[in-house]
């Protein structure tokens, strides 16, 4: 299904540069390393100097995250779950079949998954997946643009935006994958 082309087939490992635009004009640059396989998801954030700022994993089917390292301010409450949610929404396909397939009023083709109070839309362009949008309680919670042509389901650039007062933007550029 074309909608599933928005996400890489497992297992995979990838390295991205990340430019984070945070509230109050705070900006930061990091390197993100992600590994996904049948056992679960593992995400690491490194400073440009290679220092591990954050390291966490979530086993498949597990309710909780395991945080192996979190250097301040990456140890603040909610950061781990938010980061893993960012990674999950950008790179992990929703489970099961789409709840609906159709078009927005604007004409874009969409595959929709509705699970546990959250809705995930994969928006298709003429040449394949273009965006992923997630909604919680009918409010947009994440907007993810997929830029360029994917290789093995990994797009050269991914632009993730979390709206709202505490919102932020992550510009992620693929460095390497396997």
């Amino acid at each position: 299904m074309r909608c599933r082309q928005a996400f890489p087939a497992q297992p995979w490992r990838a390295t991205h540069t990340i430019f984070a635009s945070l509230p109050f004009g705070q900006n930061g640059a990091m390197v993100g390393v992600t590994a996904v396989d049948s056992a679960g998801l593992h995400a690491v954030l490194l400073s440009p100097e290679g220092i591990c700022l954050f390291d966490a994993s979530k086993d498949t089917g597990a309710a909780d995250l395991s945080v192996h390292r979190a250097v301040p301010p990456f140890d603040r409450p909610g950061f781990a779950s938010s980061l893993m949610s960012d990674v999950g929404h950008a790179y992990l396909a929703p489970t099961g079949e789409p709840t609906a397939i159709g078009r927005y009023a604007t004409g874009e083709s969409v595959c929709r998954w509705s699970q546990a109070g959250e809705t995930t839309d994969v928006v298709l362009g003429a040449d394949g997946p273009r965006a992923v949008r997630t909604y919680r309680e009918a409010q947009l919670s994440r907007e993810i643009d997929l830029l360029g042509s994917a290789t093995g389901g990994l797009f050269p650039a991914v632009h993730l935006r979390v709206p709202g007062p505490g919102g932020y933007v992550l510009d992620m550029r693929l460095v390497d994958h396997e």
């Binding site: 430019f19 004009g25 705070q26 900006n27 930061g28 640059a29 400073s47 250097v71 301040p72 301010p73």
Partner: peptide, 19 residues
């Protein structure tokens, strides 16, 4: 500083205590 979008912008990570 960080290079982003063709411009150099301030890097907030300079505030990290370890740095």
């Amino acid at each position: 500083l960080i290079q982003h979008g063709g411009a150099w912008v301030a890097d907030a990570s300079a505030k990290l205590e370890a740095m």
